[in-house]
Write a protein that binds this DNA or RNA. Structure first.
Ligand SMILES: [Mn+2]
Ligand SMILES: [Mn+2]
Ligand SMILES: [Mn+2]
Ligand SMILES: [Mn+2]
Lengths: 151, 151
DNA sequence: CGGCAAACTTAGAGTCGGCTAACTCAGGGG
DNA sequence: CCCCTGAGTTAGCCGACTCTAAGTTTGCCG
């Protein structure tokens, strides 16, 4: 049989894309959780201080400082020494998107019958890997599930 | 009212536990994907070579080497210079558990109505954050969904 | 059997996200 | 008003995971 080597490019690119996407999700994951936590603190207490994030994430003050510096470099937060941490417009947009997605994933898990605590824990990690398409599917399932009983 | 400061410990530990769990998931994530890929390569071609992982994960040979060294240090794989990569008994157990979990998450997404490609991409990241309890809930939903039509 | 290409290794580097230790700063009570 | 304490900062470290660049080894083909 003469040279039957065709369509290799796609076969190679598909599996690799999967992991490239996972790596890129991880790169933005911490940023998403931080801006969400900062927005929550501001909503609840008026301002967000570093110590709030120390408690929220169970890391040291030094780690929070490093992370906030990166977020500032990336244009998501604004802060000056000894001052509260503020979100930029872009930071607020990211926080809002992240919280919406997080809430959908968490309520979907509870809709599936998972306990409150497990839903809280699992959704915190899962949220960052859920695409728009999957998010839509979760919302659809909840809509249909609610309207048509359990049978 | 006299000294009403009780149950602070739990209130502080609950949100922080959530993120500790996410961090620990990430620590084992790459190992899980690697042993799964190695088991797949062995199943399909008899042996797994570094170059198979280079293609699978779209990273360089140097990166695969580093990662395999860590996995070997952790007792999941066995390898010698210029030889194929083998799994230890522990590595095979982890690969098997990981693949089962991965398959459930992926088929659950398809069950939800998500496209093949999105299911493949999203499940690759989500799988590592899905607890036993959520996995059970996914299996239950698929069982019930299959038996009771779409209405 | 000699050489070449593909596979593999090694060295050196960088970013990220975590830590400890040792500071400095700010603000309220005595 | 001074100082104590909690909050914040800084320096220095480390491991994970990625890369580039420059080698080495293997195996096959002519
Ligand atoms: Mn979140
Ligand atoms: Mn999260
Ligand atoms: Mn997997
Ligand atoms: Mn995965």
């Amino acid at each position: 049989m003469p040279t039957a080597t065709v369509k290799i490019a796609e076969d190679i690119s598909l599996p690799s894309k999967v992991h490239q996407r996972t790596r890129s999700d991880h790169a933005s994951e911490l940023a998403e959780d931080y801006v969400e936590a900062i927005a929550d603190a501001i909503a609840k207490k008026g301002v967000c201080r570093g110590v709030d994030l120390v408690h929220q994430f169970a890391v040291t003050h030094a780690t929070v400082n490093n992370t906030i510096q990166r977020l500032q470099r990336d244009g998501l937060v604004r802060t000056e020494p000894y001052q509260p941490i503020e979100l930029t417009a872009e930071g607020r947009r990211l926080a809002s998107r992240s919280r919406q997605r997080h809430e959908i994933v968490e309520s979907f898990l509870k809709f599936l019958g998972v306990s409150e605590q497990t839903a809280a824990i699992d959704s915190e990690g899962m949220e960052h890997h859920v695409s728009k398409e999957t998010l839509q599917a979760m919302k659809r399932a909840m809509r249909q599930g609610r309207s048509s009983g359990s049978r």
